[in-house]
Design a protein around this nucleic acid. Structure first.
Lengths: 244, 244
DNA sequence: CGTTATCTTGACGTACATCAAATGTCGTGG
DNA sequence: CCACGACATTTGATGTACGTCAAGATAACG
């Protein structure tokens, strides 16, 4: 279920320059900053790259940093002592991580694809943050949005059937992938069935069977396991919302 | 599963005076304000009282207000079209509600016991908030804490057994009730078995059976259904954390 | 005290988990 | 190019934790 990992390498010290060509900028908290503020923020940031399977942060470790993902997909994992795993989310470009008041990380962060991110020392960011009221407002907006998403996920985990969970997941992935591009009817899933299962509170077998049934019902089609075509978005949405 | 409700009555216009005697003050966001700011905030607030079963806000309604609960216990409910219900939380004194960027409420709020609260117009609060950076910082802290709690609940709903869920709930209730008082070994549960079931993603029967089994195992004892004595906190905590 | 809602307990059903095997899928090296 | 092994995914057979249905037991309330 888990992949081994070695340490990541800092590829360049944080400088305003990388920000200028950062294509996550307009999707992240940085979009609330003007150029002068970007410089101040970049001064305390470091850019890192992680290979698939590498651990970016470990649940329980001292929460020394915030992260801002600039490319790739990661997974946020919580574990029980016997190995049961719950995935909390699949952050991608633009997601800000470390939104926790606590002194230790409440989840592990692991790279699914190659992940690039911008890393901030918590102490430094806190010191700088008081100078940027817009940044604080932006973080509040982000946290509130995360909260709404988390509550929706609680409904899913507590009350939806396997079929409804998978439909919800596909529609949600489609929607977020559309946010960065034109409307489409195709979802790319960089995560494994095991990741999806642990995100939806199910097993890989149930995920696979649910995929097969959606396919048999002509609501989706699967070429390879990572590419899903949405054939009937309306019906799939209805299922996701428990309307059947 | 649901109780009828009529409309609540405003019992007094918001004034600095009620804040002075508000015993939720030190537990709420208001504790980050000095006296002058309290006056400004109180100017835009209204105090309300709700009877058990009354609806305080309805999922999907235009989110015109924020609430700050000053007394009593409420439940936050999300519903699926066929009536399946997920309870997101049981806010009590000091909890701030309406933490959502969206234009409509993402959940309904219903009074379990008699509930008193302080109500703020969203538009007015937003206008006032920019003058109180400490308030914004406080709201961010609150939102981040809620997020950590929500993530913990996702682990519970996705991966814990019925027994573990109930143990988690009891320990969590004990802990929060202790936060306002001395350490104790006794939990008061103002909510029904149905509420607990919908909070833990189970049925009332499973809740009842899990209570009975914890009782048979001498980890708790029940006088009436609403009073639980914690007999072995250590073992109960271990179960809650999935260590058995 | 009835009356009614809530809670508990028992008997049985089912959606999903578990166990097991077949079938891709993909990289590697002959 | 094909054979091979290591994995991920799918599919099938069976098990089980929890849900559903039903009946009592308690508690709340006029």
């Amino acid at each position: 279920m888990y992949m081994e990992n070695s340490r990541a390498i800092v590829i360049e010290p944080g400088l305003p320059d990388p920000c200028a060509k950062c294509d996550a900028r307009q999707h992240s908290m940085c979009n609330s900053l003007d150029e002068r503020d970007m410089f101040r923020l970049a001064e305390i940031a470091g850019v890192q790259k992680f290979e698939p399977g590498q651990t970016i942060a470990e649940e329980g470790d001292s929460a020394a940093h915030f992260f801002n993902i600039t490319a790739g997909t990661a997974r946020l994992c919580k574990l029980l002592p016997d190995g049961r795993r719950q995935i909390i989310g699949f952050p991608t470009r633009g997601h800000f991580l470390g939104l926790a008041v606590t002194s230790t990380y409440g989840f592990s962060v692991e790279a699914i694809t190659e992940v690039r991110l911008c890393k901030f020392s918590r102490a430094k960011l806190n010191r700088v943050i008081s100078d940027f009221p817009e940044l604080e407002a932006k973080l509040l907006q982000t946290a509130m949005h995360e909260l709404v998403v988390a509550q929706e996920q609680m409904l899913l985990l507590g009350r939806k059937t396997a079929r409804e969970r998978l439909a919800s997941f596909l529609i949600s992935e489609l929607t977020t992938q559309e946010a960065c591009a034109a409307p489409k009817n195709h979802v790319h899933l960089p995560m494994t069935r095991s990741d999806i299962a642990d995100y939806l509170g199910l097993t890989i077998e149930t995920i696979s069977r649910s995929f097969s049934r959606l396919k048999a019902d002509k609501l989706i089609s699967l070429d390879n396991a990572t590419e899903v075509a949405i054939l009937d978005r309306h019906k799939l949405t209805a299922i996701a919302n428990g309307e059947t």
